[in-house]
Design a protein around this nucleic acid. Structure first.
Lengths: 122, 122
DNA sequence: CGCATGGTTGAATTATTGTTCAACTACATT
DNA sequence: AATGTAGTTGAACAATAATTCAACCATGCG
């Protein structure tokens, strides 16, 4: 997926700036993890699921009705959320109830909403 | 893109919960805007560009060298960032310097990094 | 047990998105 | 004006990711 060969098609213009930024740059994997995390939030189905679960724990059927989607589609997205440990689940009889796993996530979603609401005002 | 017809393939199980969540649910467009915002952060190239610009303003060539990518690829991603008003630019002679547009973004990136760093410890 | 319901899964399909390539614009220098 | 460098753009291609479909597992109840 990553090439080692040089693909950049230009000369460096401000070598000093580039060098000093390069030295402070976090491990590439860390920024990949970061973008992977945001990627999970970056889908409207998952964003709506997360918002809904922040209001109340729910089972797959409830979410399917709420968002007017198939159980399968919901389940697939819940899996992605589970693997990113953004939601947790518990079984109760025939139902599996999902809820938000992490308080960080609530804060980040809140900050995000704040951001776009301010943006819209301008 | 959206269908009006009912695609949900199950009965509602907890009608009361679903109804009360539905009533509090934000406008669908708002949650779409939210996920679109996170989508912009959800790509490692853009995440690295944002991180770098948070350290120092830079021109396209500098970024291309730093990330070892073509000017074109960088430029396309800067466009996405510009359209989401996450970066701004100014021309100075032959160069176009890019920088972070919004302080919110820095905070959200910081919170995101915090999150994944804690996650990794567990 | 046998069946109905809730939920999950994998493969196929479709949609979306990132990068490349080649052509182009803008500014600066001669 | 002519050339070179910085940057942008659109179309084509490649890679990812979301939804559908059909089959499957798990639980509860007759």
């Amino acid at each position: 997926m990553k090439k080692d060969e040089i693909v950049c098609d230009c000369d460096v213009i401000h070598a000093d700036v580039v060098e000093s930024v390069r030295q402070r740059m976090p491990d590439e994997n860390e920024l990949c993890d970061l973008s992977d995390f945001f990627k999970v939030l970056g889908d409207s189905t998952r964003a709506r699921i997360l918002w809904a679960l922040d209001e109340s724990e729910m089972c797959v059927c409830d979410l399917a009705v709420l968002l007017n989607m198939t159980k399968s589609a919901i389940s697939h997205q819940l899996r992605a959320l589970r693997e990113a440990t953004l939601v947790k689940n518990r079984r109760d009889g025939k139902n599996v109830f999902y809820s938000i796993a992490d308080d960080h996530v609530k804060q980040i979603i809140e900050k995000g909403l704040e951001h776009i609401r301010e943006q819209k005002q301008e």
